[in-house]
Design a protein around this nucleic acid. Structure first.
Lengths: 185, 185
DNA sequence: CATGAAGGCTACGATAATTAGCCATCGACG
DNA sequence: CGTCGATGGCTAATTATCGTAGCCTTCATG
């Protein structure tokens, strides 16, 4: 290669991911990222088209991290347990990287991740749900679970749930109900 | 009064609300708002501390609009019907002002609305849920409904639900299940 | 050892937010 | 009536950022 590279795309994305988590998405400047990886801001444009592409890469990277974390789900024979594990894992992830999580789901005009990666992160859940609902409503059921979990977590992170009461209990109560309603009866 | 006012705070907030809906939150400039109300940008600062305060006012205004729309709920005797009406109303609102809705719930570091106004918008739902779950789990139940609805709508707006299937059907299927699981059994 | 592509850098240009400081208006008051 | 001063608007200037232009250095290759 031509000249010594002082950084890599990976380093840049990682730095951006960390900074987004620290500063919030609005205060993430190219300056800050550049300093973090040891170059001047304009040099970033040799690796990334613009700030939006960088954010898209951060999103993609975050999706990957999420999918990896959810993949590591133990193979419990009870689909209810697996669903619960998935949901809890999602929530834990959100608590660990609230900004990144918000970036993934719903947040403003955030660059959406590719369907493929997103689909991958949902597969285990879909399979577990299918065991309860049967093929016909597997997709509906998975949507029910993810919508609820995502909504709950989003509101929790945004502070919209502060009306008193124990939030963990509300989570568990809701999750139990959601799972219960998936089973045929 | 001193000098002829060329605009009012109300006009400014309304203009900002409309522009946010048209351009998205990131492209809302003080310039654009100023032009819309017929003054120069710096004059806005006579009414508003800064852009963030303006956004906060937009959020507050949007919450009010939402609360008003939800207040207009008919007094159906069946709490299930009322819950359904509330949820459908929320979704309709979100479709009418997607950006404003995203701003309200979860979106980025969005300025959160005052608890009071938000509480007001949830009261009718809370009452309806209480009739099904009883006092003890009224709050949990309301959270279950709002979390699911909000999550569903957020994902719908973000385009995260495009995995096939009819979205309206998924909404109705989910809503039915949610309501069903609130009733004691 | 010449060379040219890759990657870094400085210097700029453009756009927005926000501030500083000046000017005009009109109701209250002598 | 004529003056005063608070209010609201305006222009000019400042600060930050993104992104671009164009130059310079390095080193794998022939």
């Amino acid at each position: 290669m031509p000249a010594p590279e002082k950084t890599t795309l990976d380093q840049i994305v990682t730095a951006a991911r960390d900074l987004v988590e620290q500063l919030g998405i609005d205060d993430l400047t190219m300056q800050a990222v550049a300093t973090r990886v040891g170059v001047r801001a304009p040099s970033l444009y040799k690796r990334v088209r613009d700030r939006n592409e960088l954010l898209a890469l951060v999103v993609a990277s975050t999706i990957d991290a999420l999918a990896s974390q959810l993949d590591a789900t133990l193979d419990d024979p009870d689909p209810r347990t697996r669903i619960r594990t998935q949901a809890d894992g999602l929530r834990r992830f959100a608590h660990e990287r609230p900004v990144g999580y918000a970036l993934l789901f719903g947040a403003h005009g955030a660059p959406r991740g590719e369907p493929a990666a997103l689909a991958r992160s949902v597969t285990p859940l879909l399979d577990a749900v299918r065991e309860l609902t049967g093929d016909e409503h597997a997709l509906d059921g998975a949507r029910l679970v993810t919508a609820w979990a995502n909504g709950f977590i989003t509101m929790e992170l945004a502070g919209s749930l502060r009306m008193g009461g124990d939030i963990d209990e509300a989570w568990n109560w809701g999750l139990t109900r959601i799972i219960a309603t998936l089973e045929p009866h």
